[in-house]
Write a protein that binds this DNA or RNA. Sequence first.
DNA 1: AATTAGGATATCC
DNA 2: GGATATCCTAATT
Length: 523
Amino acid sequence: MEYEKMIFMTNAADMPHSCSTQFKLSTEPFPIIQPDTYAAYAYADSFDLSLLPEDAGIPTTVYQYNAPQIKIESAWECAGDIQEQAVASGAAYAGSSQQLIPPPPAYPHSAYPSPQSSPLQSEFATFAYGKYNGSYDCLSSPCPSLDATSIKQELHILPPSPPESNCETPSPRSSACSDSSSSSGCIKTEPLDADVESFIDLNTLLLQQQQQQQQQVDIKPNNQVLRECLEDTTFQRKHNLKPLALESFIGGLAEVRGDFEPVISLALEHAKREADAICAELQISQDPNGWTSAQVHAWLRSTLAQFKLPPAANLELQFSEDGAALALLSEEEFTRRLPESGSTLHAQLEIWKMSYADQLGNQMEAAQPANDLLWTPTVAYQSSNVNHEESEDEEDMEVIAPPAVLPVIATPTPTTSTPTPKRPGGTRNGGGSHIHLWQFLKELLSSPQVNGTAIRWIDRSKGIFKIEDSVRVAKLWGRRKNRPAMNYDKLSRSIRQYYKKGIMKKTERSQRLVYQFCQPYHQ
DNA sequence: AATTAGGATATCC
DNA sequence: GGATATCCTAATT
């Protein structure tokens, strides 16, 4: 519901608050509507993008409800690129003056919240684009776990709002709330910059849902209603609306994040079902970290076949890793070994990891309903955020995407041996885990979409990273280790212990908060 | 003020 | 005993 608040930014001087209620209806389905209901909104198959008005001032962004396919994390840095990409892909809509909006809250927040990209995030996003077959045709994605259809359905959970947004277009719901002076039973939406007050009368909401369902029955062929609404932009002119600048979303994204969870759960559920079948067929674990090298090969071959990718002749030679080591490989490494299919394999592996992590997360949630779902020591994986409930300490929540597997070195012999990735077992129940600090840091680094504001790679190939937020990283570390008194002073002391162990070092040109993994600890 | 460096000692496993 | 965690002083940025 928060999302709709961000759709339009009004000129405050010209738009009284009462007008904002004109847009309230578009928020109503979110709280109660079921996924199936949204199928009626999955209009993209036949939706003609050319229908969108070309008027430069028209808020076409309001119709971008399948925009979850946008790789939004890049948008923080380069909105133009995203727009280009989106337009090129056909995933977003044409329109000369479109401004990007963040993904609707139905998208897995873990894929979006940071200003940085990551393999996982990128793959998840590009996955939705249909990157797997080398194009951006999201409708032909060969991903067996989350095929285009399912993604489309799930990511269309946010219904298009135009019919309701358009004050000039009568509809059962708009008429129900057409009296802008009365906000009863409606979600009141005010300009984003305001301290937004939202209130919902559930009874009215239910009534509206019924009306909406009735409306869906009457959906005109060829999306006639949508066409009419899209073509009718008078409401915007009337209320002096303009598309909301991207920057305005950034601050509010955190609040939106939690709303993604339902969809990621659905998507992951779908992925898990697919994985189940493959696991049964290949007799492998759902946890890639548990695979032997032979099972890795089986999985790789299976995945290549599923994606109709050319079989690799020397798979065994190219991939000698076991599952845990495989999980550590970067997309670049995959691509280097298998230029044609590496990216897909890597992406699919990320999905498997995420799926398994989510599964573990759900198990943890069931076993540990307290708010300490951020990290449980029984697993080294982390759900992509199981608990989105607001919390005073939310900003300190440790949210780690499925991490790179944690290499464990029995005896640090950095000059001669390569760390042998090992399943992240060895953790214990109860307090902190046995994870090593350097492993933890790599883990944080592996999910920049989540932790990118706290720690990020400076030069990944060289293992150089920077702690951007020392306090936060220390807090996360303390939380992981169940050491509430942890601070950066202590954490950095531990890092410095790594100097003589050959695990980490300062960079040649020493910079504050910048460290470097020594070679064996960073591939 | 925050960070860096490293010694000393304690704690946990 | 290893890996921190904690506390400390001093230097540097």
